[in-house]
Design a protein around this nucleic acid. Structure first.
Ligand code: ZN
Ligand code: ZN
Ligand code: ZN
Ligand code: ZN
Lengths: 160, 160
DNA sequence: GCTAAAGTGTAATATTATAACATTCCATTT
DNA sequence: AAATGGAATGTTATAATATTACACTTTAGC
């Protein structure tokens, strides 16, 4: 299963080049298919996000981006982030005000994010069963679900 | 079951005085029991939060608080919010940067927050089963859970 | 009353995010 | 190739959210 492959990969030391390449290739493919334009700026921001599995803040991204384009402004970053999230290529972690790249953007997925408060790595995992459980509950209250924020803080296996 | 009572209460027109009184009494009781000081400022902020079931932002609270204390500053609100959250009397909704009062602070609970994007009401519901489902998953990844953000946006029964 | 800790006042600042409008780029049509 | 219209970017300013630092006051325990 794709999710498990991804989950395993990020739980252990791994060849991170693979993660990056996968994310970038998926981005090209998805944007091509949807007629969305993965411009140089957007691609570069995605690369910067995917450079590690740590969630990264918009202003951290700005600092990095400024190394190449010293005149860059916050709105450039936020516009790229909006695009990437719209395309499903990145996710915002609300409890951190920070962003991660999506490792399974090519597949529709219902995910939770596990955030290690020690090493700061954030891993998206398949949480279909969790969604079903919650939707059953919300259905029973006649609540129509639209969008779920599901972020679990704790300690990853390497840090506990 | 307490949770169901609360869940029903907030899903329909209800005597909101009851919600407020319950929250305030629980606050007194909890703080008394734990040796925490529910000072005038903190109590007032809690009242302002509990005035409705809509999530309220820190600066909205500040505006309201200023009606009584025009010199009040943001830090006063944030300090009160920190205290109330520490005491379990209020919760932050990360996806809104806003706050709600807890209606079952006297009981340990594993809750999700249902947020209606139309009327803006936010209801805390018991989600023990959802937690179990997620913890099973995180256990399988040897992740030690500490703190869960579980916020479901959508439309409540009155708004759909 | 003395003391230490907690709470509050006050000012400044940090961090996160958006609005408004001008300009440029780029695919499509002519 | 030129015109055109929409998307993307540049530029400036500002809004919205949150914290730090330090002085002063209140409170509870001794
Ligand atoms: Zn990797
Ligand atoms: Zn870790
Ligand atoms: Zn009520
Ligand atoms: Zn609660």
């Amino acid at each position: 299963m794709q999710d498990n492959i991804n989950n395993k990969t990020v739980q252990h030391p791994h060849n991170h080049q693979g993660c990056m390449q996968h994310a970038l290739q998926a981005a090209e493919q998805i944007c091509g298919a949807k007629g969305m334009r993965l411009t140089a700026i957007r691609k570069r921001i995605l690369e910067l996000i995917c450079a590690s599995h740590k969630a990264i803040g918009a202003y951290e991204l700005l600092d990095l981006f400024k190394l190449e384009d010293p005149k860059a402004k916050p709105v450039t970053i936020y516009r790229a982030l909006d695009f990437l999230m719209e395309a499903g290529l990145a996710h915002k972690i609300e409890s951190l005000n920070a962003f991660i790249g999506c490792l399974q953007a090519e597949t529709p997925h219902k995910s939770a994010i596990l955030i290690c408060d020690n090493c700061k790595n954030a891993y998206e995992i398949d949480a279909t069963a969790v969604y079903e459980s919650l939707f059953t509950l919300s259905d029973s209250m006649q609540f129509k679900p639209q969008c779920l924020t599901l972020e679990l803080h704790g300690l990853c296996v390497s840090c506990s």
